[in-house]
Design a protein around this nucleic acid. Sequence first.
DNA 1: AAGGATTTCCGCAGAATTATGGGAGAATCT
DNA 2: AGATTCTCCCATAATTCTGCGGAAATCCTT
Lengths: 220, 220
Amino acid sequence: MHTIYLVDDEVNLNRVLVKYLEQEGWQVKSFTSGEAAASAIIEKPDLWILDIMLPDLDGFQLIKRIKAHDETTPVIFISARDEDIDKIIGLEMGSDDYIAKPFLPRELVIRVKKILARAYATPKTGLIRYGDYTIYPEKRVIEENGQEIDLTSKEYDLLILFATQIGTPMSREQILVSVWGDDYFGSDRVVDDLVRRVRKKLSKLELETIYGIGYRLVAA
Amino acid sequence: MHTIYLVDDEVNLNRVLVKYLEQEGWQVKSFTSGEAAASAIIEKPDLWILDIMLPDLDGFQLIKRIKAHDETTPVIFISARDEDIDKIIGLEMGSDDYIAKPFLPRELVIRVKKILARAYATPKTGLIRYGDYTIYPEKRVIEENGQEIDLTSKEYDLLILFATQIGTPMSREQILVSVWGDDYFGSDRVVDDLVRRVRKKLSKLELETIYGIGYRLVAA
DNA sequence: AAGGATTTCCGCAGAATTATGGGAGAATCT
DNA sequence: AGATTCTCCCATAATTCTGCGGAAATCCTT
């Protein structure tokens, strides 16, 4: 389930949009001022929907802060003013989509779905970069500066697990389920072993140990 | 994997576009001047994206040189000026598509996908080269330096499957469905057998075993 | 700083997977 | 029909991967 933060000072529209978005099963939090929204950036929602015109901090300033905090967080702009729209497109504010007022809530929902799917789907196509490494998920290949590195299937599964969730700590339990499947009943020490093997082969991967918890991949 | 050369002197836009294009798994090289780009024509990228307005050599001169070098290389123009757009459409500069600024990176990616698909679709008629081998898909024939090699029908099906997906690992399941059809219920070890026979006949084909996964054809 | 808990490191045996050789039956060709 | 090729499958060999025990190192708490 995804969390969506909505920022729009028109309370009526705000209320309507929240209703529509919640109807899709998303968890929505709404703000009517830029400052209030800014202080919620650390909560890391899965998607931001920003109106450009806001009483205090405007949408452009807001997106800068959001992207500064996490480059990958998707943002959708909404605005009524043509010059804002031009600015969004022309200056490349880093938004993932925009929608011009007036619009049907239905339309917004469609865009949100699309953006969420793209941002949080394991990229079957496309690639993942991590420092000098380039990962081609669909080819089960990882290269270091063009030089392919051999990984066994479990090693690769682990890599993908972490590479698609950079920064998120993973418990041994989670790793076991993801790599071994939920029908594995051996010791969870095998995870340590697998981590060790991956670290050895991919020495530039910052696989951090979280004592008593598990592991996480630190952003490059 | 395709290589795309991008020429645009607006560094900001340039950087953003590179990011988006790389995300799709393409290899991107970017230039901020026409002269720099011109000297890279011999490197034969799979696609050029050209801004019209450039400090030295403009997009129109650039496309002439590109097409002179290889008529078939696809080119996409981008420009902000209406008169450029008119010129592109009216004078038939040989571009395969154009896109007016401002635009969303997403939009460009869609066009690029379309152009690449059109230009580099594995031709049903036409041939595939792999090292010393030349494959004529429509004739179901493969030659090694002009010398035809006999393959049985399943062997040929397997070859085509891999040759059209070079580098991508194929599970036994996928191979079974593709070569035998989805109504085959025997053991999937027949795949090993088929691979063995193809390897024997086409010894220069790097059909790699991926332990626990399946097989893949390594790029020549 | 000590002590217990947790993690890392190491090597190897056995488990799992794949390669190979050969044979029987099916399919195809003459 | 007979001959030839093709396909499937089995048994065995070869290979690769992985789990485990235990020792060493590291981390956290007191």
